[in-house]
């Protein structure tokens, strides 16, 4: 009993230290966002509450630097990418998990290998293709995003689809379902937790993507959030106050999504954890 108490204290200690370290940067961003530029660096920078707190950073970021439009763009792009990836990945995952054909594991390896190409190498040819097809500065950037999201999506979904009992599918077949109907009416609904995990991962990957977005969508009107954030500096100065405010503004919508879908996200992650 004594031993478990000691163990508990030690665990608590580590948890608190860990939390302090991980949460601190976010806390600092939050308080910096209310500070005027002159208090972020220099003598007054260690104050928790600014001597002259201000909302100007938020006002600048939201009304003058177009952060709201960037959030909108990011949402459209991430949502399009997610739905497109889910549709393509479920179809390929179904084929891979249910049909027998030669070179299946090689195919799986290839899919994974695609996602391991360094982006710097892919970006040049991708730009050329987009330029020649006149797809620059448009929502078509979703297509390019699939190179980073699709492979892992296929891998995760194959595991989930394999868990669906074959008997279910067989009885559906006997009742007259085609392969297409089996996928969308039987397997897909059962594997929903897995689909959710995949969707969330694709969404976050697309939301955070910087390189492709910054190269393919240069126009201000179509920029995504990470690129827009990088515009919050000039040649010599980084506007830390505005960047902090923007970071807070950007986190809010994603935070709402996570809170709304918390149950599904957690169940999805746990569901994939155990292989039966």
């Amino acid at each position: 009993m004594n031993k478990s108490k000691v163990f508990q204290t030690i665990s608590w200690f580590f948890i608190i230290v860990f939390l302090a370290i991980t949460v601190f940067p976010f806390f600092w961003i939050l308080i910096s966002s209310f500070k005027p530029e002159s208090e972020i660096m220099g003598a007054g920078s260690y104050r928790i509450i600014a001597a002259a707190p201000t909302l100007e950073n938020y006002i600048t970021v939201i009304f003058k630097k177009g952060m709201v439009r960037a959030i909108g763009n990011s949402f459209v792009i991430s949502a399009l990418t997610t739905s497109y990836v889910i549709v393509v990945a479920s179809m390929s995952a179904y084929i891979i998990s249910r049909f027998r054909f030669y070179g299946k594991s090689i195919l799986m390896g290839l899919i994974l290998a695609v996602s391991m190409f360094p982006q710097m190498i892919v970006i040049g040819p991708t730009f050329n293709m987009f330029y020649n097809a006149h797809l620059l500065n448009s929502y078509w950037v979703c297509l390019a995003y699939s190179t980073i999201t699709l492979p892992s999506a296929v891998w995760i979904m194959v595991t989930h689809f394999k868990q669906v009992p074959l008997a279910l599918e067989e009885s559906a077949r006997i009742d007259g379902c085609s392969a297409w109907e089996v996928l969308w009416k039987i397997i897909f609904p059962i594997a929903v937790p897995g689909v959710f995990t995949t969707a969330i991962m694709a969404f976050i990957a697309a939301w955070n993507e910087y390189m492709l977005s910054c190269t393919l969508n240069i126009d201000e009107k179509i920029q995504s959030v990470p690129v827009r954030l990088s515009y919050l500096k000039d040649e010599f100065t980084i506007f830390w106050g505005q960047i902090s405010a923007a970071a807070i503004v950007v986190v809010i919508p994603t935070l709402i999504i996570v809170l709304l879908f918390q149950k599904q996200i957690v169940s999805g992650i746990v569901n994939g954890a155990v292989k039966e």
């Binding site: 090689i106 799986m108 390896g109 290839l110 290998a113 391991m116 190409f117």
Partner: peptide, 12 residues
């Protein structure tokens, strides 16, 4: 499968 994928990735 994992080692194969890794090998492929290395080639990639």
């Amino acid at each position: 499968a994992v080692s194969m994928a890794a090998a492929l990735a290395a080639c990639g």
